[in-house]
Amino acid sequence: MTPASVYTLFFSPTGTTARTADAIAAALARDTAQPAVSAPVRRIDLTHGAAAPVTLPPDAVAVIAVPVYGGHVPPLAAERMKQVRGTQTPAVIVAVYGNRAFEKAPAELAALAAAQGFRPVAAGAFIGEHSYSLPATPIAAGRPDADDLARAAAFGAAVRQKLASTKAGEAPATVDVRRLKAPATPLWPLLRFIVFALSYLRRQKRHPVVYLPAVNADLCTHCGRCAAVCPTEAIRRGDELHTDPDRCIRCCACVKGCPVGARTFDTPFAAALARNFGKRKPPVTLL
């Protein structure tokens, strides 16, 4: 099978998932023997709203990518994906996580894609800078970097090769995404983080605290950038000093997107993640 077109279907509040998906898709679409006839790449961005209803044809390939939130597919991303369907369209399942663990997210995304009419033919888990990462508490800071994007491109090329090797009239073989093997985490940092998380949950049960991005009113210029990048409309233009707690998903797009550093997100998880998951993890893939 030679893809007639490649689609990236992604939810990416801070841009890391989009960059990874784009790198995979570009390589998947590229015919190295005839670059002039490479397949077109079309983007379906679910970050700021659901897509218009669309059904992708069986001769296309979809790169379906989401960030990992707490080991799962973000519910908002799953909801917005429901407008996009496949017709047994081959799909590449991509989870992007902040160097801790991807847990169930790739398998959940594969199940969702299959329910929408896609055939998961490959899967990968890639690293992106954690939403909570700050200069004082770096968590996979700057990723995906050049090496990550090169690996994403190599993965896309390998998927194209797999599809090309499929015999005429046959469907590409699917993969069991549950077999995607996570990189090892050193035991002591993992145990230390588990102890922290259990302690945090006990504190929250006794004294619940709602963590939201904070705004330094002296720095805020009311440029509206935070409202523009928020995927849930939790910030209103003209009222940038406030964040709706019922809408905020703690993606930190507003924090990373503020041009003057007026927004911060102070959560005890940032220091715990930076302390325990500083060792660089590589992308993992399944074909």
Rank of each mutant, 00 (worst) to 15 (best):
Tyr7Met: 03
Phe11Leu: 02
Ile24Arg: 01
Ala25Arg: 01
Ala26Gln: 13
Leu28Tyr: 04
Thr32Trp: 00
Ala33Glu: 10
Gln34Ala: 13
Gln34Pro: 03
Thr55Leu: 04
Thr55His: 04
Asp59Pro: 08
Asp59Gly: 11
Ala62Ile: 10
Pro67Glu: 02
Glu79Ser: 15
Glu79His: 06
Thr87Val: 08
Thr87Cys: 05
Thr89Arg: 05
Pro90His: 10
Ile93Met: 07
Tyr97Ser: 00
Asn99Arg: 11
Arg100Tyr: 04
Ala107Arg: 00
Ala110Asn: 01
Ala113Gly: 10
Ala115Cys: 07
Gln116Asp: 13
Arg119Pro: 04
Arg119Val: 14
Val121Ser: 02
Ala123Phe: 09
His130Val: 07
Ser133Thr: 05
Ala141Cys: 03
Gly142Ile: 07
Asp145His: 12
Asp147Arg: 15
Asp147His: 12
Ala150Gly: 09
Arg151Thr: 07
Ala152Leu: 00
Phe155Pro: 00
Ala157Phe: 07
Val159Tyr: 12
Lys162Gly: 08
Lys162Ile: 08
Ser165Thr: 14
Pro172Asp: 03
Thr174Val: 06
Thr174Gln: 07
Asp176Trp: 07
Arg178Asp: 07
Ala182Ser: 10
Pro189Phe: 05
Leu190Trp: 14
Leu191Met: 15
Leu191Thr: 13
Leu198Val: 15
Arg206Asp: 15
Pro208Phe: 02
Tyr211Leu: 05
Val215Leu: 06
Val215Asp: 05
Ala217Glu: 08
Gly224Ile: 09
Thr232Met: 09
Ala234Asp: 06
Arg236Cys: 02
Arg236Trp: 03
Gly238Ala: 08
Pro245Met: 06
Arg250Met: 11
Arg250Gly: 04
Cys251Ser: 08
Pro259Val: 04
Gly261Asn: 09
Arg263Gln: 06
Pro268Ala: 12
Phe269His: 10
Ala270Phe: 13
Ala270Glu: 07
Pro283Gln: 14
Pro283Asp: 12
Pro283Tyr: 07
Thr285Tyr: 11
